[in-house]
Design a protein around this nucleic acid. Structure first.
Lengths: 115, 115
DNA sequence: TTTTTATACCTAATTTGCTTATACATAAGA
DNA sequence: TCTTATGTATAAGCAAATTAGGTATAAAAA
């Protein structure tokens, strides 16, 4: 389990990215998927998850539809057109940020053995 | 410039790592180095920098010594033994976290073309 | 059959790590 | 002379998370 400070700030990007992979997903499914793929090294708690999803909906980056499974209701989330754009932008920003961090922490000389 | 949420949580690790590279550094020097190495894509503002440095000192991960340059005083920070250990741990955590993020966002199948 | 675990959603109070803004002071350059 | 660079410091405020609680159904274990 990574420290909270580290994970904080990446959750919205993660959610947008995962929603971009599938047609639609529901909250519980998202949290399970993150847990599984990261071997519980990243955990999307409900307290973080649902407020983010609601914010995304409010910002029109996702749309929802309710589906009944037996007697329980699932709330599926799907990216809008804006959401897809935002997902790509956020992902790129994160990947670039990681590159920048590596550059900062492990600076390599530009020229190697140039003599 | 990356969004604040993204940078948040990585600053302490960055500072510890940079202090590990040199014998000692002072605050202003740290902020300049980060700006320069990242082409201003990551900026260590004073409001973030100094509280972190003070916390590190309080936690005995760094020790300070004042040096006079002309009429101005520089406060140099150097890692303690614990600080060196912590720096390595934090760096590893960050690197692992980045790997986990990539795995999460771009999951590759384990076996490729195995037929 | 009762209890626990898994599924499924939600929110309020609090914490935290930053930003923003401000302060003080010296040195150098325009 | 005014601005920019150097150098340290802190206080108020914010936003994204944590922590901790709530509601409810379904399945599995005791």
């Amino acid at each position: 389990m990574y420290s909270n400070e580290l994970v904080r700030g990446t959750l919205k990007t993660i959610i947008l990215q995962l929603l971009g992979e599938q047609n639609q997903m529901y909250g519980y499914e998202l949290s399970k998927l993150v847990k599984e793929r990261t071997q519980e090294k990243i955990v999307l708690t409900e307290g973080a998850l649902y407020p983010i999803l609601h914010k995304l909906e409010k910002d029109k980056l996702v749309v929802t539809n309710l589906e009944k499974v037996g007697n329980r209701t699932r709330k599926y989330y799907a990216l809008t057109s804006n959401g897809k754009t935002s997902a790509k932008e956020k992902k790129n920003e994160l990947l670039e940020f990681m590159e920048t961090l590596k550059m900062l922490m492990e600076p390599k000389p530009i020229m190697l053995c140039n003599y």
